[in-house]
Design a protein around this nucleic acid. Sequence first.
DNA 1: GAAATGATTTTTATCAATAAAAAACATTTG
DNA 2: CAAATGTTTTTTATTGATAAAAATCATTTC
Lengths: 297, 297
Amino acid sequence: MTKANTRFKESFNQCLGIIDDLAIGAELPGEVALADALKVSRTTVRNILTSLNDLGIIDWQGRAKVILRHSKKDEFFSDQETSPISERIEGKFLKWILHGDIAPDAPLNELELARQFNVGTSSVREFLINFSRFGLIDKKQNQRWVLRGFTKEYALELSDVREMFELHAVRSFVDLPDDHAAWKQLDKLESQHLKLLDQIDTQYSRFSELDARFHATLNRVSNNRFVDEFQDIISLIFHYHYQWNKKDEKERNEAAILEHLAYIKALRSRNWEAIKSNAIKHLGTAKNTLLRSLNQN
Amino acid sequence: MTKANTRFKESFNQCLGIIDDLAIGAELPGEVALADALKVSRTTVRNILTSLNDLGIIDWQGRAKVILRHSKKDEFFSDQETSPISERIEGKFLKWILHGDIAPDAPLNELELARQFNVGTSSVREFLINFSRFGLIDKKQNQRWVLRGFTKEYALELSDVREMFELHAVRSFVDLPDDHAAWKQLDKLESQHLKLLDQIDTQYSRFSELDARFHATLNRVSNNRFVDEFQDIISLIFHYHYQWNKKDEKERNEAAILEHLAYIKALRSRNWEAIKSNAIKHLGTAKNTLLRSLNQN
DNA sequence: GAAATGATTTTTATCAATAAAAAACATTTG
DNA sequence: CAAATGTTTTTTATTGATAAAAATCATTTC
């Protein structure tokens, strides 16, 4: 086996979703439109159509693509099958280093990881190379990878740069023209925060994603690829942090929402001192949550 | 062919150097000491010793390694043979994108690059993945790499973060204890600057390396891996910039040395305003040089 | 018996092969 | 004749194989 068709499977699932939203007897859009909607090439769309046709879900003849029936539950591919290998490695690896009890400075073994994750060594290699930008692992020419580890130092260094970048970004809000896209995005974010706050008892775990978008929006005004890159690191670390550190989650998230709302108000005021103090306060809270989660394992 | 023994060849050359510094009839140090000196494993050292023995340069029997003669010129491996493939790709690729006339947003082709550089596709792939952290190329899942290009925007974004990081770093010089290692390093750097200034007419091209060390020293006090990482990017970009942009090199370097010297004085004064203004001035000069070099091609 | 060498095992660097997916080109259809 | 489909070509994602190099274990020597 050389390559699993995860792209096909994922898009196939999505396509079933589209079909289920349409009436039986209705027509599917053209191949180009579908490719656009699914964000894949026409080649893949055609493979999906062939498959749908074979399953008797649609009747495909030339440009006629008539829906014959809706999907059955077991026709969807499982989550495991639909994520590309690189993502699967990422998930497994992060779980392993953030959760497993691996000591800092432990050597990592490409071959062993490949076996453990059930993928080829090159895939592991490419993953590690790419992942090394996150500063959690390291290697020297011809030597093995070494786990630097998700340590207190890591959390502090990460938080320092985060504060530096975000303060730099929000400083420009002081003079941001009224018609800048960021204001509208902030309005939207604010209402989403309010909505979540309202349903906090049941929906609190949805904050993670909102948090990422909030900070991404702020930092984007810097218009700097290095800042964006760093935001990706933050986002990944917090993503997994939220995923595995469930202690007091509801309380933490509720508090964070309130901080975000105050922060947004300060930004609107265009008062630098107010902005600054809100930024520092909130980023400090985030830093502490991260640090506290370290002490637990 | 699966792997070229560049490590062996490079160390072999180094080893010949060591031998030539010793007298004929003298003994080479033990295997462990050699491995340490050459920064390779004992395995490689033993391969080198075998080869030296075969060539009749040493007589190797057990722990006796007697030097029989010095090296001949043609016994050294050529530079091309001694650099690992990853480095060769880096050089060729950077020359290609910084010098070649490739339009921004041009797609990059792994296979074509592999052919062009005469290496396997995986090596190109790994290089590109690693190189993508520099922000000059980009890719989306299943799509090709795209050259973002060494553009004006790139130079500006790079310079912005550079200023942010370096100002953050030098701010801590204000309160840096007298016994911090950085002061000694600064003293040493200062004298090296003075020496170079003295021989500026002939040695001006050696400034590049000094420049990298100077800024690395400043930024290192931040004690932050993300800052260090970024410093590597700066260093690489400037390295190649210096290598190919020779216009007014002597004058530029002389001016930069003077700025560095003033900068060092300001740091020693521990006067934040003085430090800040020197930092901003010098980084501004660097930014402008970079920008000007862009307009030329 | 610690330090050095000798021998063996493990791991990394690199290449080549191939199915999946994208991209490009050619043909048809309203 | 523009937009859609049909067909072919190119490129990427992933695997597996292997020599170079590192790491480990075993034996000797001073």
